[in-house]
Write a protein that binds this DNA or RNA. Structure first.
Lengths: 349, 349
DNA sequence: CTCTCCTCCTTAATCAATTAAGACCTTAAT
DNA sequence: ATTAAGGTCTTAATTGATTAAGGAGGAGAG
């Protein structure tokens, strides 16, 4: 049994293929009687409706937005910041009635043609490391592209926050409280799976541009407060998990002199640092101040953090792509906000 | 400037379109020199690579899985059970190197052709209410379909858990502890936005088949323990949120006699019930036992719950579709497990 | 009776590729 | 010299639709 197409129906009824097409897509071009007969026969033959791929080819639109994310999807679906962003993007897609095609990144060296073969009208690229091959593949498609958070791609619109300023605000907060023994725990700088101390060279060569910039903000604020950045302990972890944060917390709190404030670049990490503090019986914020980032899991824990407009960023990215405004390489920075809760206080005297 | 296609390149070089196609997809069919020249000219002309839509049409495969979910995406991305499922599905999709096309459901009466126009090889339908029009649209596409959780569609494979048994297990647990004043709080029975008491007729006419079945399990266990189901207070909420659970909790705990055990069909709801108990200064589990469902947010809260293999269910659904085994209407039930934690205990004597 | 207009349908071009089969030329073996 | 075998490229069919332009026929106006 061959596949049923418009032609099959046309042949059966002795009409032209165009007529059958009109029956489905333009009822006013046909007499009611014939249209009814066509739909009847279509039903009888088990016609599945006009082939979307053929339709898409002819009409030149796919009705979908491609989404490319740095991590495996299983991981992305567990990350609060990513989820907030997805929610925003999904809202925009929903409003426009288009689908969201989530593309897997080629993991390891296994070659995959998903970007090349993605039937989409535009791409949204989120949080890719500098020089990731998938970005080149996306750009080769010559479709509208918007980049979120990182990397910065000249000539294409960008949506995110002012990372250096936001990082500086987080650091300035604890510095303003009087802390001088500040330490940093960060995730998502490199994608080489390294967990441990990171020297300045490694910090500055981070491949994730947004996190690199955020770290720059920490440094700027510390230096403005008169600290020598080389004296600021810096611990890097590979995964954004509470457990990793705990490990970083233990490493940092084992130092002598012990830091009185720890800056982290995600809330999840900050929660882990709090766990470490609890393990050691340290009072937060009495003996240790902790700052998170993103305000994704911070409220219940009473965590001081930087709030990012996750959903708005997602919506903005979506709307930029769907409105056709992605041609202009607009750089849209969303506001961030320091949220002071109970995890920060002046250092012990 | 017209669009650049294989033909443009072919014309420029005075070769046939087929040759250019081979240059991209089958290097061994061509001399190295010509291939190099073709790729050079392609680059020069700004060719975006073989059009994926045309490719897809010719090859008859889309390289994507369609996902249909009952709720708006923004909501789904906030639901722990849905997220666990997505993770599993995404893992399967990733392994196979195919994309995941998340389709928005037509919200309200705004007609949308997303299902009709989705360029996919198969559909995964999750948690749709009985008689939802989107399901008919999916079935009309005559593609492989797998349904997860609900509704049950004869002739198509199904993945989920044994809902009546799982519900009964949850209820049997508190009944076994000696509770007799049992109450129920449930979400996701109807999609009419109703929050409030639900009588038996309304319970039994729930449009979400899985939740209907789960409720049936509660009832069976209660009746087997000698309770009259009509004496079991039943509160229904419209949204799966902690706040809604709290509201249900207050409604139920205001009753006289006060229930000593409350069954809920999601962990999120159970957390809200715990909030309500805390509001009233009730000791859990001393004065009140609470049971959740899904083991999605239960561990930290010490909640007794039914663990569902969320990710495994997602992976199984994905693999079923990607392996081509979706033709057989297999019904695959995954194990569930009662996890007893600190939110349940014998009733106060 | 002729002209115009409308309704309903057909013709044919178009969207952008893939690929089996065949043509042509060169090289090597018999 | 003849035949076979390879390598390289072309021809042409195929995938399944959409839609502008045109034609046939009937109705109504002058």
């Amino acid at each position: 049994m061959a596949r049923v197409t418009l032609q099959t129906i046309a042949d059966r009824l002795g009409v032209s293929r165009a007529t059958v097409s009109y029956a489905f897509s333009r009822p006013d071009q046909l007499s009611d009687g014939l249209r009814r007969r066509i739909l009847e026969v279509a039903d009888e033959l088990g016609y599945a409706g006009p082939n979307p791929t053929a339709r898409s080819l002819r009409l030149g639109r796919a009705g979908a937005l491609g989404l490319l994310f740095s991590e495996t999807l299983a991981y992305a679906f567990a990350d609060p910041y990513a989820l907030g962003f997805f929610q925003g993007l999904a809202t925009a897609a929903e409003e426009a009635g288009v689908g969201l095609l989530i593309l897997p990144l080629p993991h390891g060296d296994r070659r995959s043609d998903t970007v090349r073969d993605a039937v989409v009208d535009a791409f949204c690229v989120v949080s890719l490391p500098d020089g990731h091959p998938a970005l080149a593949e996306v750009l080769a498609r010559k479709l509208p592209v918007v980049v979120v958070d990182e990397p910065y791609v000249p000539g294409h619109p960008f949506v995110g926050i002012d990372e250096p300023a936001a990082g500086a605000a987080a650091a300035a907060h604890v510095l303003g409280l009087g802390h001088r023994r500040v330490a940093v725990a960060m995730v998502g700088l490199h994608d080489d799976g390294h967990t441990g101390w990171a020297d300045r060279a490694r910090q500055e060569s981070a491949v994730f541009a947004a996190m690199r910039a955020r770290r720059g903000g920490y440094q700027t604020a510390c230096e403005q407060a008169g600290l020598d950045w080389d004296d600021v302990p810096f611990y890097e972890v590979a995964r954004n998990s509470r457990e990793a944060g705990r490990k970083a917390g233990h490493a940092l709190l084992r130092l002598d002199p012990r830091p009185t404030a720890i800056l982290t670049n995600t809330d999840v990490l900050a929660l882990g640092v709090l766990d470490a503090a609890a393990d050691l019986g340290l009072d937060v914020p009495g003996e240790l101040s902790v700052v998170g980032f993103s305000d994704s899991a911070a409220r219940e824990a009473g965590l001081t953090t930087i709030r990012q407009a996750k959903q708005e960023i997602g919506e903005a990215a979506g709307r930029l792509l769907l409105s056709g405004a992605a041609a202009r390489p607009e750089r849209r920075l969303f506001p961030y906000e320091l949220i002071v809760r109970a995890s920060t206080a002046p250092p012990p005297s």
